[in-house]
Design a protein around this nucleic acid. Structure first.
Lengths: 111, 111
DNA sequence: TTGACATATTCCCATATGAGAATATATTGA
DNA sequence: TCAATATATTCTCATATGGGAATATGTCAA
């Protein structure tokens, strides 16, 4: 098997840093392609291709207004990612707790 | 520029489904490579390579015990992912709220 | 209808990937 | 020292990628 397609799911779509940039940008508000191109530092053709990938996995949606295409984030599509990472939350909390305890122990020792 | 390296960050490392499988498996407890190989459905060489990528971005850590290498999750490395997705939490909450409101409006209408 | 603008698609290229197979490198125990 | 076991690395292959450039498609306005 080859590398998983960028369009296979949100995890893969979001692996590309430019696409995260675009999502971050769209998080504030809906934007036209031209606005996105101006905000990013890549060619229009690349932006369009990234938007296609994002749309493919449902991370963004489009609305046409005349010649303009307004893209906006579909945050719901990010939830699976959030939930997967949450699975590990218990673990890092535990880790942080241990770090804190160790720091306190050292502090006590110094007194 | 070419596709971002799988080793460039946690986002890319985690894009590969097998690697998520491995992380899920290790979330329960530390495991040796052989145990991981038995749990997954891929060759030992592939597992070793995935582990190398995960280690490269700090998502797992290793401990040697004789001939055995025990891998465990370093949950802290997942936090950036969790935090990035959290940026969008406000948006999907808002979306869910609107869905709920709409449902309630329809319910009221039917009465 | 034509020209201007906005966006999408196609083409080409260099590159890294993931898979399995084979091999190399520990480490242990006899 | 040698065989067995555990893991890592190397090799080859097929493939999808992202980038830019060029081109196609769509829409408006005159």
């Amino acid at each position: 098997m080859t590398r998983a397609a960028t369009t296979s799911d949100a995890f893969n779509a979001v692996a590309e840093p430019r696409r995260r940039d675009i999502l971050n940008y769209l998080a504030m508000q809906e934007r036209s392609v031209t606005e996105i191109v101006d905000a990013m530092e890549i060619e229009q053709s690349s932006v369009s291709k990234h938007l296609k990938v994002l749309k493919g996995v449902g991370l963004v949606e489009v609305r046409r207004e005349g010649r303009l295409m307004f893209y906006h984030v579909n945050a719901m599509a990010i939830r699976p990612l959030h939930e997967w990472t949450s699975t590990f939350e218990r673990l890092w909390r535990h880790q942080l707790l241990r770090i804190k305890e160790r720091a306190e122990a050292i502090h006590r020792q110094k007194q």
